[in-house]
Design a binder for these strands. Sequence first.
DNA 1: TGGCTCGTTGTGAGA
DNA 2: GTCTCACAACGAGCC
Length: 524
Amino acid sequence: MEAATAAMVWFRKGLRVHDNPALDAARRGAGRLYPVFVLDPRYLRPDPAAASPGSARAGVARVRFLLESLADLDARLRRLGSRLLLLRARDDDVADAVCAALKDWNIGKLCFESDTEPYALARDKKVTDFTMAMGIEVVTPVGHTLFDPADIINKNGGRPPLTYQSFIAIAGEPPEAILEEYSELPPVGDTGEYELLPVPTVEELGYGDISQEEISPFRGGETEALRRMKASLQDKEWVAKFEKPKGDPSAFLKPATTVLSPYLKDVYRSVRNYTKPPVSLTGQLLWRDFFYTVSFGIPNFDQMKGNKICKQIPWSENEELFVAWRDGRTGFPWIDAIMIQLRKWGWMHHLARHSVACFLTRGDLFIHWEKGRDVFERLLIDSDWAINNGNWLWLSCSSFFYQYHRIYSPITFGKKYDPNGNYIRHFIPVLKDMPREYIYEPWTAPLSIQKKSKCIIGKDYPKPVVDHDTASKECRKRMGEAYASNRLDSNSFKGKPSNLSRRKWSHGDHDASNSSIAKLLKTS
DNA sequence: TGGCTCGTTGTGAGA
DNA sequence: GTCTCACAACGAGCC
């Protein structure tokens, strides 16, 4: 059976060679191996109308990170006597390109890493429908997460655990990593008429004019990921003492976390136990799995409406405030510096993410978490659907976390770590000469100081878009009201008198949507 | 069913 | 610098 010896490994998220169950399954028994990645123009095509340099779906830092990861994957495959076969999506449809290649190359076995995102599930179903019809064997091992989300949900009686602790209790020990090393892969088979693309650079994709921009110091790829992990783990004391909440969010020259998250698509299973979850390094990996599991088990996880674990909150619509936040023009230097770091580097510290997410939603602007989620998703080099949505639900107090009176201060939170404001001075050069006592609140500087610092507030740098004390108090009040409404609605769901909840819902235009949520809850 | 515990990472005041 | 407390009080999981 000639066909049965031709196998394809289809790379999507796990752009790595080591500890890759899909690659391992594909190489075993294969006479010829086709390692494939499909370029999706929707992620790569420059969009001049986008809010910042990049495509419609990915900022340029994220595009660059992907391309570097692909180049490294190709290089590592070549060292094993193989290579990466880079295909272009047909009419923007990745699944079609895979199906066509399977047929044209007479592939007998297809292996790819299981992916639980809704987009991926739909894409992969299209491919597996095809392989079923064609009689092609398919293997889809779990490789992106430590656990299989479906397994955890089954163990928990069909529902995902909704707290981290209950997740840990159910999950147990993660499976062992694949430790087997191999020095060669089966040769690549004949690819016929196919146009195999070299890995393009961002410049070749048409992003040439941004070469003057400050770029992310984080290079993509498994080689860099392994180097970074090795360097981090070599410092045993650092690992043993690692406590996530104690990291310094303003440390940008030498970040306080591992910065492994962007590479987790390439590497992670070799990290074994050191200290205790939830703040330890392994604890961080389990958080990933926690959000993956919930996101797989809860319909409409990535939106407020129709999401039964999400508080229904009447967020404000205010495009002007949203754009100021997105573009780093809120007038709060700490917030703006973080958003500028995000746009340029595609990465910022975990607690910096907390600060800006809280500010946008329940802390100051009362704008919908889905708006912020979209910005992060497009710009982050460690962009990840399940984790990004999970954290926005968390930070906006829509799910998982409900202490809405705990609000990060856009002034004092950063000051605690970086009283001189070095982080601000780096990312917002116009403030670089502002004296230390005004760097977090430049609008309070006397005009003479502003002139001396060559930064007039309201002209060279914006005035604050809100007064934090007033805005945060108002936000607390509105959160309290929204929670009360949600409580009343869930009481009526439990069969208690519903006339109260009717009355409570009657403010504004949220009556209809909240009623439909109530219906949805009733049917589930 | 209802009561209890506990939860990765808030702030500001005061000792 | 480090600690404790009030602030005002949530909900999932568990017994």
